[in-house]
Design a protein around this nucleic acid. Structure first.
Length: 480
RNA sequence: GGUCUCGUCGUCUAGUGGUCUAGGACGUCUGGUUCUCAUCCAGAAAAUCGCGGGUUCGACUCCCGCCGAGAUCACCA
């Protein structure tokens, strides 16, 4: 494929959530794959819906996911400005061109009148087509007047890269508004002007624009423009029901997952593969893999349901992948904001040691907060937890106390306090006490952590260090 | 209502006329890994391929009809 110019063109009405971020990911992949460019364009022509700070939110999301744009806000480019509100002259210019060629007209009809037409059609159960009510002799355009396209009903055919061959009849074409009374263009018109001016080759957007495409085609035609490649992206469905995932279903913003300890690699991987696959059984894709293997014709044409469980699974995979392929240091760098508060007073080396033995239990980085508490603060002694344990409830308190004392005695003999030596001592203790691993290890594990679970016992003890381990064991022995 | 789109395990999907007694992944369940939780490994359950016709020696795959779901019909994008 030759160099593709793609764009992500959100309107700044709020954050980007998982339901709509695919329309940023796919254009990015296509641009990178073909050695082309991705443009970020802010479609802020609806002043009533504009949200302060939304642009920054959008930029932040894209950056976090690693979707750098080649032209747009912050980076500039030869086709700016990249905010539609700053390009109004351009839209007026193009609209006038259409008026001059007889393919658009200034519409003086008051909106009450339009409502009347619409009501009439509804009452007669006929489709409402504005072209049937077109004013006979439209006035010359002047600011403050909307401009409408003058449609010519006919059938259209086109190819959608995802949906395939499309055909529609003349009944879908209408005189759509190009320029609103407030002087701003509608999306319907602005995006065509901008995509043309910016040289966009692939128009990728949600399927909701599929039914308006014939109207866009008519405008391209009237303007004598070449059609871009149309790519309709199916919706991502909410976990329940058959509606597309939206903010009303509680769709979280993409960056909210960053706070939850989801890795951008996992997010990108999951989202890219929701409704797309390369036909192999591969599940884990790096950004580079995606750039190489992505193809428009393998995008699913039906909607895909969002499944957070799988995202979390994938995140766990990525946590382990980073730890094993890039090393624990690399993983550690991602964890800085996720440790329990008490961890702050410990050294980096200690936190890394904890991470090393706990990371394969993490689904998200924020799991660190509750999974590692006992590494940074002495746990509250909970004798009930000890006594009611599945393996220990068979033992009397006296037996538990004896066992604990034997353990303390044996461990004090350990010379180098390494995981291996601890394990060796533990094994000997098993023989000398005649206890089952389940009994002895449960006892020690609970006594040093009072946590529902922990890493392997010897690793936990080695990391905790001799002093802390012994102190905790002694404290429990005294408490019984 | 008009127009358009979609319809394979609970979920994401593989599948382009025979290799499909429909494959993989998540989730679920079972077992293993000297304690726990998780990882990892092994295994199981789970889809009359929306329904009904047709074409064909043969259809999940092609055609028609139906049903179901969704999108759209704004001076919103």
């Amino acid at each position: 494929m030759k160099e593709a110019i793609t764009r992500f063109a959100p309107s700044p009405t709020g954050y980007i959530h998982i339901g709509n971020v695919r329309s940023a990911i796919y254009p990015y992949l296509v641009a990178r794959q073909t050695g082309g460019k991705m443009i970020l364009r802010i479609e802020d022509t609806d002043r009533t819906r504009y949200v302060e700070g939304a642009t920054e939110l959008i930029e932040d999301t894209l950056k976090w996911l690693g979707l750098e744009w080649d032209e747009g806000p912050l980076v500039g480019g030869p086709n700016g400005p990249y905010f539609q509100s700053e390009r109004t002259d351009l839209y007026i210019k193009w609209a006038k061109k259409l008026i001059d060629s007889g393919r658009a007209y200034a519409d003086p009809t008051p909106s009450e009148k339009i409502e009347e037409y619409r009501a009439k059609c509804n009452a007669e159960k006929k489709p409402f087509l504005y072209r049937n009510f077109r004013p006979e002799n439209p006035p010359a355009w002047e600011p403050g007047m909307p401009i409408r396209f003058k449609s010519e009903p006919k059938a259209y055919s086109w190819t959608d890269a995802v949906m395939g061959e499309m055909h529609t009849g003349p009944e879908v074409l209408d005189d759509i508004i190009l320029i609103k009374a407030d002087g701003f263009p509608t999306y319907n018109f602005a995006h065509i002007v901008d995509d043309t001016e910016m040289g966009v080759t692939h128009v990728m957007r949600g399927v909701e624009y599929l039914s308006s495409t014939p109207n866009y085609l008519a405008i391209y035609e009237a303007l004598g423009l070449e059609r871009p490649v149309f790519v309709s992206l199916p919706h991502i469905l909410a976990p329940q029901g058959n509606k597309k995932l939206g903010k009303r279903d509680g769709a979280k913003s993409v960056t909210e997952y960053r706070e939850d300890g989801v890795l951008p690699e996992a997010m990108l991987n999951y989202l890219a593969c929701l409704g797309w696959n390369d036909g192999t059984e591969q599940e884990i894709y790096t950004k580079q893999d995606l750039i190489e293997k992505f193809s428009l014709d393998r995008i699913q044409s039906s909607g895909a349901r969002y499944d957070e469980t799988k995202l979390l699974w994938m995140n766990g995979q990525w946590i382990r992948k980073i730890a094993t392929e890039q090393g624990i240091e690399a993983l550690y760098d991602r964890t800085v904001n996720f440790w329990p508060e008490a961890a702050a007073s410990y050294s980096e080396d200690y936190r890394k040691a904890v991470l090393t033995i706990i990371y394969d239990r993490l689904k998200t980085l924020s799991d660190l907060r509750n999974m590692t508490a006992y590494f940074f603060a002495d746990p509250q002694i909970d004798l009930d937890m000890l006594i009611s344990n599945k393996y220990l409830k068979k033992l009397s308190e006296a037996e538990i106390e004896t066992l604990l004392k034997q353990t303390i005695a044996a461990l004090s003999e350990v010379t180098d306090w390494s995981a291996d030596s601890i394990q060796e001592t533990l094994n000997q203790l098993l023989v000398s006490t005649g206890k089952k691993p389940a009994e002895l290890f449960s006892l020690i594990r609970i006594a040093i952590s009072f946590a529902p679970f922990s890493p392997a016992l010897n690793l936990t003890m080695a990391t905790l260090g001799r002093e802390v381990t012994m102190a905790r064991l002694n404290k429990v022995a005294r408490a019984i």
